[in-house]
């Protein structure tokens, strides 16, 4: 037996050779991982705790420079957030936005993955195209969408009024029911590639014999999908749903760039930003952000506890 197999085995004690080499490995492992841990602690964990402290204090940009971090604790920020009807409105918008964007992007991603399952000439190229919305810079694509949907000179309204008999150009990003629908469509467009990527990888890994046997038995394509393929990719769909829900719930860039949070699209993260930059209310913004994280963590806990039996190891 070599030393490293001993070293990678669990340090159960016993023979001295094992404990020396595993102790050396342990020290090497800690040294190698330390810079990473320090950076993540300094930029994520410390700010998270600090955010919690700020949420319990009455601070704004004008006072924070003089008072430092030790201020009397107060619950005003939390009562302020929880009794503000616009907070609950933004939470509702966030939930609608997250659920529809997630469901839509996974559905479109699944359709795309199934359509591209059988090989054909140029499939590799089409696959690369599919991922472009996901990798392209959000500022650039959001700007192009703004121009495309512009009521005065956007191509969509120009074609719509010319060929589809629209009476008036539609203000896709500036009027209440349309704006939220548009940002959801944008989100589906931008993130269906993510679902497509993972579902394609999973479809590639499916064992061939089951489907071949089913085909010999004369199942139709829809039966094959419903009874053979879907049960096998369900864990990936469940995992994608959780991942995308978390990501969309926390999303800031897309809506901020498209509408700035106007016309009924002020999701929670945009609201926090507007609170911070618009009214310099650090304590209020921190409390708002904290309540959001608590809601998200609570929902996740319920999901993991009651619904998810497996799939957590595959991240």
């Amino acid at each position: 037996m070599t030393r490293s197999t001993l070293a990678t085995a669990a340090p159960t004690g016993g023979r001295p050779r094992r404990s020396i080499s595993s102790r050396r490995d342990s020290r090497a492992g800690l040294t190698m991982v330390l810079p990473t841990v320090i950076i993540v602690l300094a930029i994520f964990i410390v700010p998270l705790i600090w955010n919690l402290i700020l949420a319990f204090q009455s601070t704004s940009f004008t006072t924070i420079a003089t008072t430092g971090i030790f201020n009397p604790f107060t619950l005003d920020n939390f009562t302020g957030v929880l009794t503000d009807p616009t907070f609950w409105a933004s939470l509702g918008t966030t939930v609608i936005y997250s659920i529809f964007s997630t469901a839509g992007s996974i559905a479109v991603g699944l359709i795309a993955a199934l359509a591209l399952r059988k090989p054909f000439r140029g499939r590799g190229l089409v696959r690369s195209f599919m991922l472009l919305p996901y990798v392209a810079p959000v500022v650039a694509v959001a700007f192009v969408w703004q121009i495309m949907l512009n009521p005065q000179f956007g191509i969509i309204n120009a074609l719509g009024t010319k060929y589809l008999d629209w009476q008036h150009p539609i203000d896709f990003l500036g009027k209440a029911p349309y704006a939220l629908m548009t940002v959801i469509v944008f989100e589906i467009w931008r993130y269906f590639p993510f679902a497509f990527l993972f579902l394609t990888a999973r479809l590639l890994g499916l064992p061939k014999d089951v489907e071949e046997a089913a085909l010999v038995d004369g199942v139709t394509p829809s039966q094959n999908f419903r009874y053979v393929v879907l049960p096998q990719i369900m864990p990936v769909i469940a995992l994608l749903s959780v991942l995308r829900l978390i990501m969309t719930f926390n999303k800031f860039d897309d809506i901020y760039l498209l509408t700035g949070g106007g016309a009924g699209t002020e999701v929670a993260a945009v609201r926090v930003y507007n609170q911070l930059i618009g009214s310099f209310d650090i304590g209020g913004a921190a409390a708002n952000a904290f309540v959001l994280s608590a809601i998200l963590a609570g929902s996740l806990f319920v999901y993991v506890k009651f619904f998810a039996g497996r799939g957590e190891d595959n991240l």
């Binding site: 410390v46 700010p47 700020l54 924070i64 926390n250 993260a269 650090i282 921190a286 994280s293």
Partner: peptide
């Protein structure tokens, strides 16, 4: 799991 905006406030300060 956390919204980036939550760490943005303390980092800004």
């Amino acid at each position: 799991l956390f919204p980036v905006i939550i760490i943005a406030i303390p980092l800004f300060v």
